[in-house]
Amino acid sequence: MDEILTLVSFGPNGWGDEIASGVLVTITLAIATLPFGLTLGFLLALAKKSEEPSLRAAANIYTTIFRGLPELLTLFLVYYGGQIVLQQLISFLFPDAQVEVNSFVAGMVALSFVFSSYASEAFLSAFRGISLGQYEGGYALGLRRVQTLRLIILPQLIRLALPALGNLWLILLKDTALVSVIGLSDLVRQAGIAARVEKEPFLFFGVACLIYLVLAMISSIGITRIEAWSSRGEVRR
């Protein structure tokens, strides 16, 4: 028991510091992905509910691709494919330049693609929950389209979409584990290194799983708070 505690403790004999830095990378990656994923998802939802068929089709192609591909494959496509495409583009301008894609950025881009395509569905079904009268009310007050969207629709949209978005956040947190495959030192990778060095794989991967559970619990508490905040204008039932 003492040995186990030493192994996971902080300091020179334990792997606590390494694992903590991995946790930090995992959380940073998830949080860095969130704004891009949410914005892109919202824009996609706007496109999908548009009356213009070509716009709807363009958005649907995007979601079909990124919801159909395995997340791991998306990651590889962005990581290796991005490298090739950027290399081609750069070599037009600077023939000698070498491009190397940062694995954090590749992870962020790939996870944003996946997150946004699922988030667009969440926003879209939230849009369906808002009656047409809300828009008409806004126009009747003399608000412009963008103003109506921002001041009247968006606050209700957030409330309606939050449960689904909360789930997507938990999925995103778990999907960050995939970046360990392209060499980013996240929680899973650090746990794997510790497991190999100390020959205690069950212990370290078990610890990693427990940390993911703790992160999920903290997230759930946070999401409940945000939901309470977003529905503060609701009638208490």
Binding site: L170, K174, D175, T176, A177, L178, S180, V181, V188, A191, G192, P201, F205, A208, C209, Y212, L213, A216, M217
Partner: peptide, 9 residues
Amino acid sequence: GTPLIAQAF
């Protein structure tokens, strides 16, 4: 609550 990849490992 845990990633599939961590479970597989």
